[in-house]
């Protein structure tokens, strides 16, 4: 036993040594992306596409949230920060202080469709109704022309860029010329991801939630808002009231010809646009 163990340890040491000597040989180009879970699907699909095209490049995608993406970019922890919202003042200030100049690249447009269970007869809501539902003023579907069921409100986690977009576009409104921010009601459920929202809605007949446009499929029903159905055209034309651009931030404009540059301009290529559209987002050139 003892002998064998020693031999094993020796072998392991030799193996490690060998690895170490090989290590010096080739350096791999790495591209680290960090940030929003909403931009995640685009980044992941781009990453796979890019790695297949350029075998020597290693692209890593973290989906830890927009705020974390900004932090990573500022700390030089990543080369591209995916964000579903624009950088905040204090993040910009911190970046500049550390010598990082964030440059935004809009990679796609996204709408925030409101999702309900397909068995829900309600076809559409107004922004006011949505606000009332999420703030708790309306708590039963029958108040908006639906069946007599208590509404289960599902929101994205308060930390997400999606939540901030929703909160800014829907929950904030003018009352006598003053901006009032309504709070989401106490009993609302919070889900950490877009996929989670869809899962909650498709399994809960009385639920309403919101997620990225890419997460609409046959298992849920997207509602018309102010009479406009969320689609690629209505989002880019601005008809659909709850839409936003999705960003990738880099430190300065990337050097032309670099992998970072190729990556953040991938969405402009024909293939890139097809990928964006296939995942369910709206390509930026879709006018």
């Amino acid at each position: 036993m003892n002998m064998r163990l020693k031999r094993l340890i020796m072998a392991a040491l030799v193996a490690t040594g060998l690895c170490t000597s090989v290590a010096v040989a080739g350096e791999v180009d790495t591209l680290v992306l960090d940030g929003s879970t909403t931009v995640g699907p685009i980044a992941k699909a781009f990453a796979e596409y890019y790695m297949a095209k350029h075998p020597g490049v290693n692209v890593t995608v973290n989906e830890s949230g927009s705020g974390n993406g900004a932090k990573s970019l500022i700390n030089s922890g990543c080369s591209i920060a995916n964000m579903s919202r624009f950088m905040k003042d204090n993040e910009f200030a911190a970046a500049v202080e550390k010598g990082v100049m964030p440059v935004a690249h809009v990679v796609a447009m996204d709408g925030l469709p409101f999702l309900v269970h397909p068995s829900n007869p309600v076809k559409g809501l107004t922004v006011q109704q949505v606000r009332a539902i999420f703030s708790g003023a309306i708590s039963n579907w029958k108040e908006v022309g639906g069946p007599d069921r208590e509404i289960v409100v599902v929101s994205r986690d308060t930390n997400s860029g999606t939540y901030e977009t929703f909160h800014g576009l829907v929950m904030t409104h003018d009352v006598d010329g003053e901006k009032v921010k309504e709070k989401i009601k106490d009993g609302a459920e919070y889900v950490g991801s877009n996929g989670g929202i869809r899962a909650r809605v498709q399994s809960t007949p009385a639920a309403i939630g919101y997620a990225g446009l890419g997460f609409v499929d046959k298992t849920v029903k997207a509602l018309e808002v102010n009479g406009v159905y969320p689609s690629g055209q209505t989002v880019t034309s601005g008809l659909y009231p709850v839409s936003r651009p999705l960003f990738m931030f880099t430190n300065g404009y990337p050097k032309l010809g670099s992998h970072i540059h190729a990556f953040v301009t991938l969405h402009l290529s024909e293939q890139g646009q097809e990928i964006v559209e296939d995942i369910g987002f709206v390509p930026v050139t879709h006018y």
Partner: peptide, 20 residues
């Protein structure tokens, strides 16, 4: 942790600073 990352190489020295 990373959601998508290239397969780690079998070389420990290249791996240590990569999210996986």
């Amino acid at each position: 942790a990373a959601s998508v990352a290239a397969v780690l190489s079998f070389n420990p020295l290249q791996v240590w600073n990569q999210p996986t």
